[in-house]
Nucleic acid binder design. Sequence first.
DNA 1: TAAATAATCTAACACTGTTAAGCAAAGGTA
DNA 2: TACCTTTGCTTAACAGTGTTAGATTATTTA
Lengths: 198, 198
Amino acid sequence: MASKDRILRLKDDTRNNILAASIDIVKEEGWQALSMRKIADKIEYTAPIIYEYFANKDAILNELTRQGYVKLGNLMQQAISEHSDPAEQLEAMWLAYWNFAFAEKELYQVMYGVEVNCCAMQNMCPDIQKPMNMLWDKIEEIIPADKRTEEYVDTKYYTCWSVVHGLISINMTRKLTSDEMNKQVLKDAIGGIIASMK
Amino acid sequence: MASKDRILRLKDDTRNNILAASIDIVKEEGWQALSMRKIADKIEYTAPIIYEYFANKDAILNELTRQGYVKLGNLMQQAISEHSDPAEQLEAMWLAYWNFAFAEKELYQVMYGVEVNCCAMQNMCPDIQKPMNMLWDKIEEIIPADKRTEEYVDTKYYTCWSVVHGLISINMTRKLTSDEMNKQVLKDAIGGIIASMK
DNA sequence: TAAATAATCTAACACTGTTAAGCAAAGGTA
DNA sequence: TACCTTTGCTTAACAGTGTTAGATTATTTA
């Protein structure tokens, strides 16, 4: 029955429309503005029909997450294919990861639980800046005078911060690394960066 | 007027109670379960009185964020005081940062926008694992056979991932680094780690 | 054409943040 | 003591959220 196929294809279409509408809304207004009724509006239905395609709102987020990983995988595959040396391939893969994060910012946010909405950055009161300044000043102190430019201190500061914050985030969102592994990574990375300063 | 002081002190008390109740709820049920009515319940008031102490819900989050930074600053100060060598001080400061993140997990989450709620980790389907596996395999390929243990590959993988993801998160939540700075950090860190593998 | 099935909507529930209106107790003033 | 004003707090409501049950409409099948 070809008509059955057509109907299934149509069902698939609205499923994709739901996902597309969701991403559209998020791109326009951010994740916290995404609601079932807004999605329904965009695909010109009422909210309950969405539940014929997805169990709940979380299921939509999960599917978008999955699609994000598929896209990321493809970009990495492409990165590999553009180089022959393994080390260059690896570097290209991480660069692809980096580029993906900003090209598909909204997908990256839901994939890795990066919240944007609130606080922290707008009202930059002294209390908030203090820990950062303490670290920055200490790094400045360690770097020998002949290398001590603002840019150089910045680089070291952000490198340290990135690896520590990154490892913390990874541990908080998915708990799959052992404690010894964490200490190892932390010690190695921080130690390495500090050594490279002197 | 001493009675005025007493009343002001009481007002201050309920303000602190609101903050304490908020943290309690978050520790018990997570950030997404925090609601004005639940806070009111806990301090034995009704929701609207909270608005006499905070402009809105975001203001509560902001204050908790601020307090988080104060605590972190103090811990770092302590870390400094326990060492004399600047390099050791810096390492202790980062360790304090790390320990703070897990000792005050909920504060860290609101300070740095680390979402926990959704997706990604529970239903670990192949699509989701693929990018990670590609990177892991490539790192394994680069590491010379005599060093190639699972632990060693893991360490390098997580170090790379942490620095890249950390830098991305930092850029997404607060936009205060320049593009050249990012490229610099990325190139330096990834390049350094790859070089250390061989 | 009549019955059965599928597609869709309306209405509702329990929740969310937030605001306006009202009540009741306390304070100051005559 | 009597009144008035201020304060503290509550109730009720609005508009929004995710989600479900029931009713309604349209389409397919017999």
